[in-house]
Design a protein around this nucleic acid. Structure first.
Lengths: 238, 238
DNA sequence: ACCTGAACACCGTTCAAGT
DNA sequence: ACCTGAACACCGTTCAAGT
């Protein structure tokens, strides 16, 4: 646990020159590997073989460090070619984002939580890029800017919610998953939780990609219906 | 800040008998009033005028304490009379939940984050009750149990997502809100964020209840369309 | 058997002292 | 001017000592 040797780090180099990128990517690796709690200034310094205080040159705060990690993760979202149908694009972005979340499950709390303590205008640019991108996509598709904002909110709200849902039901390793689930459901009082208990098998196998896609279909269908009923139908490709 | 007087607590009683309820509700008050970071074992003990160690009789862990707080909040969700139309019920629950979140904004990260580290079957009963309740509601309305689960996931996913969205854009006090927003947006590079910058005014006034309701309409419309297209249409009231 | 609190192994951050 | 690390004010949790 608290072995004092220093040779067992990821980087073989003894003293690589520090940079914001290196600090943040090392921080991300730490979170991915050992969980959010493992990301402390002191431990990160140890991982980089540097005095923990030197990190304050690259992040003013622990909070700033966390923001930096979310930014790094968000930057992993590939930007798409712009020429596809907007509904196709929204689907692709959603699936990309889902995969990103599955690759960094330990970062999800950060993704979801950090913006709660930072006004929209003051967030790291990297986290605002997807928002701008989707707005552009919708406006290009013919939506009025204000409408695009509403569509974005429904879409992004649903997307975040789905991913939270999926990771809440998954997270543990799949082998144990079913057993723990059965054990856990068994614990529930039968009178108070009849339906939940009965859903054991259905809960055990969760096809996240399919579920996301169905949800998107529901959303896009409803959206189309609302647009058709509205005064100024802004649908582009008829 | 660190004044050593002990008389300035909420409860005038010098040494109220401890109980799980008192511990958790004091913890909730602490989070509501001073934020999540203020909820520490030591500070909670001081608030209750007790040795911090004595709290371990009521929560095995700090994690268990956090779970307890989420449970207390979830229990504030009123259970509804069962005889309404299911769509009406889903709308009502959504708005109730939204109001609950607005009353306890500091608890939202807990609501969203705690389940990520606890398998579904092992969560506090209080947090599972809404799930059971909605399943019952949908099954009573004529959905097959497995379908009810899917509907629940879309619905709850969207609901959580909306609330996160809304609190991410709100949170700061409304007076400063617009100014900070304008200031923040001004900071964004004009070439990279043209749409976001242009949306300043639209972003500044956010009618959360209306936005939630429109989102629900989209969702329920899409859901109805999907049900109508499926093989076994389980819609109850024709 | 229960409760208390000293002690341990950590934190983030400040700031004076070194270079 | 920059970097370092001692020091401060906190943490959660263990566990031996008291009752």
């Amino acid at each position: 646990m608290t072995s004092p040797d220093k040779s067992n780090n990821q980087k073989g180099t003894r003293k690589a020159p520090l940079s914001r990128e290196l600090v943040l990517s090392t921080a991300l690796a730490l979170v991915d590997g050992k969980g959010l709690d493992a990301l402390t200034m002191r431990r990160l310094g140890q991982e980089l073989q540097r005095d923990p205080m030197s990190l304050y040159r690259y992040a003013a705060n622990r909070a700033a460090l966390l923001d930096g990690v979310t930014e790094v993760v968000m930057n992993e979202l590939a930007i798409l070619p712009e020429d596809l149908d907007w509904q196709v694009q929204l689907r692709k972005i959603a699936h990309d984002f889902r995969l990103l979340a599955l690759q960094h499950p330990n970062v999800l709390p950060l993704l979801v939580t950090r913006p709660l303590s930072t006004p929209l205008g003051l967030r790291p640019l990297g986290t605002l890029r997807p928002l701008e991108h989707i707005l552009a996509l919708l406006i290009d598709a013919g939506f009025a800017p204000a409408d695009a904002l509403h569509v974005y909110r429904v879409y992004y709200g649903f997307l975040y919610g789905h991913i939270l849902n999926e990771l809440q039901e998954y997270i543990v390793d799949p082998d144990e998953n079913e057993a723990i689930l059965r054990l856990g459901l068994h614990r529930l009082p039968a009178k108070e939780f009849p339906h939940l208990r009965a859903l054991g098998p259905a809960l055990a196998d969760y096809d996240g990609a399919a579920e996301l896609d169905q949800g998107l279909t529901i959303l896009l269908t409803g959206l189309a219906a609302q647009l058709a009923a509205s005064d100024s139908p802004p649908v582009p490709q008829p």
